[in-house]
Amino acid sequence: MRELTYVEAIREALNQAMAADPRVFLIGEDVGVYGGAFGASAGLHQQYGAGRVVDTPISEAGIAGACVGAALTGMRPVGEIQFMDFITISMEQLVLQAAKIRYMFGGKATVPMVLRTPGGSGTGAAAQHSESLENWFVHIPGLKVVMPSTPYDAKGLLLSAIDDDNPVIFVEHKLLYKTKGPVPEEPYRIPLTQTDVKRVGQHLTVVATSMMVPRALQAAEQLAAEGIELEVVDPRTLSPLDDAPIIRSVIKTGRLMVVHEAHRNGGFGGEIVGRVAESEAFDYLEAPIKRLCGLDVPIPYNRTLEAAAVPQVADIVREAKALVK
């Protein structure tokens, strides 16, 4: 199959959604002629014009609010927040408006919007351009949170997110943008809330998100040579979460490690662990559960410190061995 990079897959999804539905438009900082800070909308301004690829001032609350208002009145906006860190400026509109409007209005309004944003560290951009804030949104009823880890998933999940009648926070990763993988040319949809088993194994369930999925798969390759088989499970949609495949996997392997880049304290890993602990899988556990997460520290600038702040392949290998031994 043809291969695309993750960012090309996102661009193709945006292009196909815009071509198919005049209600879909893009809005964000530098999404136009510039093509988006990471190139996700490159060329779309030329193709669709400034009316459908809307460059905004530095106004993250305004971008989020513009998505809410347009979505409420018949459009299907796709906003971009240039770095996930900046979504902090949009929080009021996302948490208090987008997420709650349908419920507060008795189920009589729909807010079909997508807000794309790249999270994650590894670019040397330090503490204010490296956040992984996905769990803030997981905590809010009324928001869906999607976090693809491959080009294939990125395209299929983005098309589903744009189709969805609810507000979706679509979290990309800066280090994944240049990764390559097979992507069908035609439009296709991957349902939201569908956990994916990325690698089958019998010794340890590794639930990983975003950039941690390829790292977990690399670790699995290394460990396979030593006879340890990891089962790598990618939730893809963090909320609402399809937890059944995770629980089934833990029942099979008897061991669980959760790997994410976000800080451990209050992170998504706690939710996974909680769901497993509350499930029938609890009786099958043969070892303590492990959370391998970003350290509880602002992402440091220094290259060595930055790498040490989030899980690397070697960390996954080491912790997996400790759990399986």
Binding site: A66, V68, G69
Partner: peptide, 8 residues
């Protein structure tokens, strides 16, 4: 901010 989206 929502009124911006309605206007758009």
């Amino acid at each position: 901010p929502i009124s911006v989206g309605v206007g758009l």
